[in-house]
């Protein structure tokens, strides 16, 4: 049986597609050489960049091609490739972790985060750590901040196992306006 697959857009990266597909035991990091027909696609420059994470494959298409033209063939190549041998993938990638973190805070967990009054953005990422700006959400409520932090960390690690730590931006009392909870008002009066 073929593996289920579908493409998702990558915000701010018009030539990129994140293929949501079961990647099995493939290592997580930047792809140096891909298996199956994906290999030649990278060699001839149709695909300019590729990452693998747990549960998706990120591909960048060369600017002279369009996804409507190349998409179906690349989709088939990804489905066949994830089960094939011959991958050469780096052990982790700071760029990949940054992309994943962006996807988690703006996509996957967006509803959850906003429902907690939060506004998280990614400040920086290294090969095994990520720095997040939690906006003002958690300044006044440590428990809630911890809830958000833990949830983001768990979600990130599931997709990027090498993750060591998720840290908050030191000056989380940023200029961004804080959501005013009734509790907050009570405290001031």
């Amino acid at each position: 049986m073929r593996k289920p697959i579908h493409p998702e857009a990558v915000t701010g990266e018009p030539q990129a597609i994140r293929w949501v597909v079961d990647t099995g035991d493939l290592p997580v990091g930047e792809v140096l050489h891909a298996a199956g027909t994906l290999g030649p696609m990278m060699e001839y420059g149709v695909i300019t960049r590729m990452f693998v994470e747990r549960g998706s494959v990120w591909t960048w298409l060369a600017p002279e091609h369009t996804w409507t033209d190349r998409g179906p063939r690349i989709r088939d190549a990804v489905v066949a490739g994830v089960d094939a041998d011959g991958w050469d993938v780096t052990d982790g990638s700071a760029d990949l972790l940054r992309f994943i973190a962006d996807d988690v805070v703006h996509g996957q967990l967006f509803t959850f985060i906003t429902s907690h009054g939060g506004q998280i953005s990614v400040v920086d990422a290294t090969i095994d750590a990520v720095v997040l700006d939690f906006g003002g959400a958690c300044a006044d409520c440590p428990a809630q901040g911890q809830t958000l932090h833990d949830r983001v960390e768990v979600t990130l690690r599931a997709r990027y196992p090498r993750l060591r730590e998720v840290s908050k931006l030191a000056s989380s009392h940023s200029a961004a306006p804080r959501p005013r909870s009734p509790l907050h008002l009570l405290k001031r009066t």
Partner: peptide
């Protein structure tokens, strides 16, 4: 969408 879903029945089911 970046590209339309597949057209063959099994591709659609996988999608």
């Amino acid at each position: 969408p970046m590209l339309p879903p597949p057209t063959d029945p099994s591709g659609v089911a996988d999608w």
